[in-house]
Design a protein around this nucleic acid. Sequence first.
DNA 1: ATTTTAAGTGTAATATTAACACTTACCGGG
DNA 2: CCCGGTAAGTGTTAATATTACACTTAAAAT
Lengths: 230, 230
Amino acid sequence: MAETFYKEHSKFHVAVDCIIFGFDDGMLKLLIHKRKFEPFLDHWSLFGGFLRSDESLDDGARRILFELTGLENIYLEQLYAHGEPMRDPAGRVVSVSYVALIPGHKYHSGFSEQYDAVWIPLNMMPDLIMDHNDMVERGLKWLRRRASTRPIGFELLPEEFTIPRLQNLYEAILGEKLDKRNFRKKLLSMDFLKKLEEKDKTGSRKGAYLYKFDQQMYNKLVDNGFSFTI
Amino acid sequence: MAETFYKEHSKFHVAVDCIIFGFDDGMLKLLIHKRKFEPFLDHWSLFGGFLRSDESLDDGARRILFELTGLENIYLEQLYAHGEPMRDPAGRVVSVSYVALIPGHKYHSGFSEQYDAVWIPLNMMPDLIMDHNDMVERGLKWLRRRASTRPIGFELLPEEFTIPRLQNLYEAILGEKLDKRNFRKKLLSMDFLKKLEEKDKTGSRKGAYLYKFDQQMYNKLVDNGFSFTI
DNA sequence: ATTTTAAGTGTAATATTAACACTTACCGGG
DNA sequence: CCCGGTAAGTGTTAATATTACACTTAAAAT
């Protein structure tokens, strides 16, 4: 069919590259690996692959993430299409980048060794192939903007988390210290955090209460015109 | 070269579609036309075309905008890549949408008749082909977000404009009435509007002073940590 | 001169943000 | 068992930003 109407037009390889954020040890990190094929075999690279003829971009991103890391049900969002003619010296490839946020409880699940993936703190990023460093930079900007206008920080934490831990995350994302009291006050005033009975004692002797993000409550608030900001 | 390493992978047509906003008569409008080729010959459509093998996505968007409307030097920004396998019944096409903002002084320059383009108010949008209505919706969301965090409103006005006119524009973008005094106060307090000597008397007997957006001043402010919001 | 119309102007009330320091709970070691 | 260390937890005040609101003015048209 395509051949009927569009055959005179050029065709392109379409790739998907995943900018995979994680949060550990008080630091934002990115999951990268050494490329498994030519060109740039063995160079540091984002996780990427070619789109298949029967899948959407979103499906492609999901598949690639799964194939290369074994991770499923991950927060994924399209970021930007890169199409400089010479961006890949091995051929004309349009690459669509996606941001993925890996929650805390999957961060340490052993996949990274199996799949030869490594977590690298953002401020120690090596040179990546092609325009991947640009993608990372764009991804970080996206994360900053997004995390301050949507409650997506929770995507990077375990389901149950403490307020201090959440604050550390926001500090890492925004790159600035925040005031403890103001942070807590603001978050709790928004009414979508459910306090649990237990404490997490890994962070201190005293222990800090665990909380859960209440998605339903958040949705209700949004319906009533509430909008998240931090 | 591409054939050396990537030849086993699928290739795709890549299209660019332009979501072209204008502001006239107190209304936000979109420039659309009736499609010139099959499939969907003669159906309402955004301005779009196929990417060429030697151009970047940005270049493609610029070229298509120029070929189909004759307009050059227009504010253009990439929005989103659409890649559902069945989005185009005539074949597999990945389409990257771009937003274009047409300034007031080019709005009425006669190009729209020459090129068989029509300005349609956003609230009277007809059914467009394929996923073009989705693109428009996304474009509008983008415009709302963007216009309230960056001084891009000016891209939709003539170089010289009055405060009331600027307010009308923001009201049209945001879809809500704004307070005259607060609006003026806020805008002028930001210090990047240069007041001119002349008045524009088309809007009233009294006439309203003309202003110009001072890009250099704005840049300086941004360097000092200022950030625009409305 | 009078009417008409949109432009232009200031202040007070309210809400939001920012700054800031001490107490508490708990564990571990002496 | 008590003492020290450590991160968690807690309120108030000042400064700033936002909202609400109504009359005067300039100039053209009659």
